[in-house]
Simulated assay, not measured.
Amino acid sequence: MEDLARDRTGARVPAERLPEAEAPCLARSARPQVVERVSRLPPFERFLEENRTTVFRYLTAAVGPIDADDVFQETFLAALRAYPRCNEAARLDRWILRIASRKAIDHHRGAGRRPIPVAAPPERPTEVDPAGLFRGGGSCKRLPGIAQTEATRAQGASHMDERLRISTQEAERRSRQAAERFRAAAPDTGLVDVAVGTMGSPVGELLVAVTPRGLAAIAFEGDDRDRVLDRLARGLSPRVLMAARATDDVRRELDEYFRGARRRFDLRLDRRLMSPFAKDVLGATARVPFGRLATYGEIAGRIGRPKAARAVGAALGANPIPIVVPCHRVIGAGGNLTGYGGGLPRKELLLRLEGSLPAA
């Protein structure tokens, strides 16, 4: 295997696209696999994964196994709505159970007001003596359900015992299904501020993040995913969710670019993760056309800071939207590729794809 360069995070990246079996992998943690999987999710989804089974078991006992799924959805949608106001030091496990309790109460109140279908009303009045209802006599026993009160209570207690006895494995399975339904439905509620998706590419797996304003971030496979997701949550909104469908346009245009079918991206950009200086630098960089190159000094001159070539390089290295904002098209004055946030092998591959790789 060819020597591998290291990118800004220290991860090793390939010089060329490799077969899947040979592709470099991120270092695996010694922690259990489920913990590793949770750690690579946005903060709210980590919270969802850590609490979904407990919440589902509680709701199964509170509203029954049939309605637990619906109330689960309402619970976590309410949590997502309020999540930006949460204090990081708060006991979120207790907080989500309070929300679940309120939703369970709302469910029972709604069920009490819900009309119950009955057969056609009788053509003649009932023969029950209304006065007998208040004498404690046998008239009450003739009313539907009254004579069965004690049996009904006993049956209800039995059902509650059954609800509480739901196994951890069953709660895990059903809560996982409920969580998937929540993820599928949440983007359509307007509550997801940052939608995240992933895609394969010749430079490795890419993570893309989209907001209502536009594309906010692209991260390479070697980047620390937890750090990237936490930056999105802190810099944009805590309501970050894995929602691939919302990133379809971005992933489609990137795929067209890598296939050689696109030379210019038609995407709106969300530049909130850029500093004012970086916005100037990356704005000038975005105007370097496909197949052309510019030097750090030239970009510095275009923004009116001719002596700031080093600062320009730092801003390009921290570009949150690589590839679409083509910082790979900026090279050293002597024609050297110098640095790149995604690693020099990726910069070389992108320039070769565009037919602008400088001669050695």
Score class of each variant (00 low, 15 high):
residue 6 R to T: 13
residue 7 D to A: 06
residue 12 R to I: 12
residue 12 R to G: 12
residue 17 R to F: 11
residue 19 P to V: 15
residue 27 A to I: 15
residue 36 E to I: 09
residue 37 R to Q: 10
residue 38 V to M: 06
residue 43 P to W: 05
residue 45 E to L: 03
residue 48 L to G: 03
residue 48 L to H: 08
residue 49 E to H: 14
residue 53 T to V: 15
residue 55 V to L: 07
residue 57 R to Q: 05
residue 58 Y to K: 07
residue 62 A to I: 02
residue 62 A to K: 12
residue 63 V to F: 08
residue 65 P to F: 09
residue 84 P to T: 04
residue 94 R to G: 06
residue 95 W to R: 14
residue 95 W to C: 04
residue 106 D to N: 08
residue 109 R to P: 00
residue 120 A to W: 04
residue 120 A to L: 08
residue 123 E to R: 13
residue 123 E to D: 14
residue 127 E to F: 07
residue 128 V to I: 08
residue 133 L to G: 08
residue 136 G to V: 11
residue 137 G to F: 10
residue 138 G to W: 15
residue 139 S to I: 13
residue 139 S to Y: 11
residue 140 C to N: 13
residue 142 R to W: 04
residue 149 T to R: 08
residue 152 T to W: 03
residue 152 T to R: 15
residue 153 R to S: 09
residue 155 Q to E: 09
residue 155 Q to S: 13
residue 155 Q to W: 06
residue 157 A to V: 08
residue 158 S to W: 12
residue 167 S to M: 04
residue 168 T to Y: 05
residue 168 T to H: 04
residue 168 T to I: 07
residue 171 A to N: 02
residue 177 Q to K: 06
residue 178 A to Q: 02
residue 185 A to P: 01
residue 194 V to G: 01
residue 200 G to V: 03
residue 207 L to E: 03
residue 208 V to K: 00
residue 209 A to P: 00
residue 210 V to I: 10
residue 212 P to Y: 10
residue 219 A to Q: 04
residue 220 F to S: 05
residue 221 E to Y: 07
residue 223 D to E: 15
residue 227 R to M: 05
residue 230 D to T: 08
residue 230 D to A: 07
residue 231 R to E: 07
residue 232 L to E: 01
residue 232 L to A: 03
residue 242 M to W: 14
residue 244 A to C: 11
residue 251 R to A: 07
residue 253 E to G: 01
residue 265 F to R: 03
residue 269 L to H: 01
residue 282 L to R: 01
residue 283 G to H: 00
residue 290 F to D: 12
residue 290 F to G: 03
residue 291 G to P: 03
residue 294 A to D: 13
residue 294 A to R: 13
residue 299 I to L: 02
residue 314 A to N: 01
residue 319 N to L: 04
residue 319 N to G: 03
residue 322 P to D: 09
residue 325 V to E: 00
residue 327 C to V: 09
residue 328 H to L: 04
residue 340 Y to W: 07
residue 347 K to P: 00
residue 349 L to W: 15
residue 356 S to Q: 11
residue 358 P to S: 11
residue 358 P to G: 10
